[in-house]
């Protein structure tokens, strides 16, 4: 497959990842990044969180979210390096870092979320 023909697929992943990241991350990051650590809200009990995360639907949903968000990062960061830091000449290395990183992260997410607990 030529490089040109993969671009629409990568853009689609970037775009879908942008939507799920915009909708999901602010609430989750506010809770787990600030509200719980700073004591504004008491964190959920282990049993409750384990029950939520133990449900196959939430784990499948989180996996889809992780894969799309990682490819969103890969695509956007790649162009940020091309244009922002004027690194177009390092195309090969940047593509490997970005899409390779997204693939590796997706594999880790799949391993963590699909293996039975």
């Amino acid at each position: 497959m030529s490089k040109r023909s993969t671009e629409p697929l990568l853009w689609l992943l970037f775009s879908a990842g942008g939507v799920v990241a915009a909708l999901l991350i602010p609430a989750l990051l506010f809770l787990f990044g600030l509200a719980f650590p700073l004591g504004w809200v008491s964190p959920p009990h282990y049993a409750h969180l384990a029950a939520v995360l133990g449900h196959p639907v939430s784990r499948l949903g989180l996996l889809v979210f992780c894969v799309l968000a990682l490819f969103h990062w890969a695509h956007r960061f790649r162009y940020a390096l091309y244009d922002g830091l004027r690194l177009k000449h390092l195309e090969g290395a940047i593509n490997l870092l970005c899409y390779g990183g997204a693939l590796a992260g997706s594999a880790v997410a799949g391993y963590l979320l699909l293996t039975p607990w």
């Binding site: 990842g17 990241a21 991350i25 989750l28 990051l29 787990f32 990044g33 282990y46 969180l49 384990a50 995360l53 989180l62 992780c66 968000a69 990682l70 969103h72 990062w73 956007r76 960061f77 162009y79 940020a80 922002g84 990183g101 992260g105 880790v108 997410a109 963590l112 979320l113 607990w117």
Partner: peptide
């Protein structure tokens, strides 16, 4: 455009949480 870096960081943070919950109550704490 740099916001994408923090989107990726959140995925890492979330997976660390999932891993901790999978390991048990001590790891969650």
């Amino acid at each position: 455009e740099l916001s994408s870096v923090f989107v990726a960081w959140f995925v890492v943070f979330l997976l660390l949480l999932v891993y901790a919950v999978a390991q048990g109550p001590q790891d969650y704490q």
